[in-house]
């Protein structure tokens, strides 16, 4: 009985793993097949004559520029959100702040409501102040989206670092800012990394903001470029799956590198605050 349930548990897990990864591996396999083998019946699970022609085609279409745009937007937004978020989070924990309950409500409320509902007026505001279709609009918007979470995480995790440790550092001759940098930030590092990972995934994985806030091809994110590519080459599944794989590698690598902090933070409820 015990052996049976152990065996069925393992089979269920294997099945779950195949369902989760199977589609992605199938896309990877398709992206490596020559075009005339893609619709082979029965389907070839592994490419018989693997080729990189689809990746070459995407490069010829300039996919690397869109890749760089997406990376730059995400990195800048995460850095801005972390710096502003940690600063505000620290102040909200250690200092008296004018209208503190209202300020906390602003950060909490904006965290709960998804940004999609305000995209339409954002587009009109951005147009009227001349930021629509510029390099700066997406990093600014992304930073604004992920900032409330960064504030919240910083605030709740800075609280776990004892004030005495900071004071000890100040007695040793450090300024308050140095004490925060040397004592408080490292103490909250796991939570800050979790917030950074979460923020990166939000930015990198966005499509609607990117597709509505910039029009120029050279400003497009990777996701928007892929959908445009699909519009022109709708049936070129080999190249489309190459695009899927290229767009999937960065968020999955970031997730795998920082999964410890992400999973740990959510599992003990601490990232939620």
């Amino acid at each position: 009985m015990k052996i049976l349930s152990r065996a069925s548990l393992l089979i269920a897990c294997l099945l779950a793993g195949i369902i989760a990864l199977g589609p992605i591996l199938w896309a990877a396999s398709t992206s490596l097949k020559p075009t005339n083998r893609i619709f082979a019946v029965p389907p070839e699970i592994l490419p018989q004559n693997p080729t990189l022609e689809h990746y070459a085609k995407l490069l010829a279409e300039g996919v690397h520029w869109a890749f760089l745009n997406s990376s730059a937007y995400a990195v800048v937004a995460v850095l801005v959100a972390l710096i502003l978020g940690a600063t505000a989070g620290y102040a909200l924990m250690r200092y008296p702040v004018a209208g503190k309950p209202a300020v906390l409500l602003v950060f909490m409320g904006t965290m709960a409501v998804p940004g999609f509902a305000v995209l339409l007026p954002t587009q009109m505001l951005a147009t009227s102040i001349g930021l629509h279709d510029t390099w700066s609009i997406l990093p600014i918007l992304y930073a604004g989206h992920i900032l409330p979470f960064a504030v919240w995480v910083s605030r709740s995790h800075f609280a776990t670092v004892p004030r005495e440790l900071e004071q000890a550092a100040e007695m040793d001759g450090y300024s308050r800012a140095e004490a925060v940098w040397k004592i408080v930030i490292p103490g909250a590092k796991p939570a800050l990394l979790a917030a950074a990972t979460f923020g990166f995934l939000h930015c990198w994985n966005d499509y609607v903001t990117g597709s509505t806030m910039v029009d120029s091809p050279e400003l497009r994110t990777l996701q928007v470029a892929l959908i445009f590519f699909q519009g022109f080459h709708g049936r070129d599944w080999g190249s489309l799956m190459a695009g899927v794989i290229i767009a999937t590698i960065p968020p999955v690598v970031v997730f795998l590198l920082f999964r410890k902090f992400l999973i740990g933070g959510f599992a003990d409820g601490s990232v939620k605050g």
Binding site: C13, A16, G17, A20, L21, P23, I24, L201, W204, N205, D206, Y207, Q223, L226, I227, V244, A247, T248, P251, V252, V254, F255, L256, R259, I263
Partner: peptide
């Protein structure tokens, strides 16, 4: 297994 199951979650919805 948890890491494996989370891979699709790390992907972009449009992708």
């Amino acid at each position: 297994l948890l890491t494996v199951l989370l891979v699709p979650w790390a992907m972009s919805p449009i992708v």
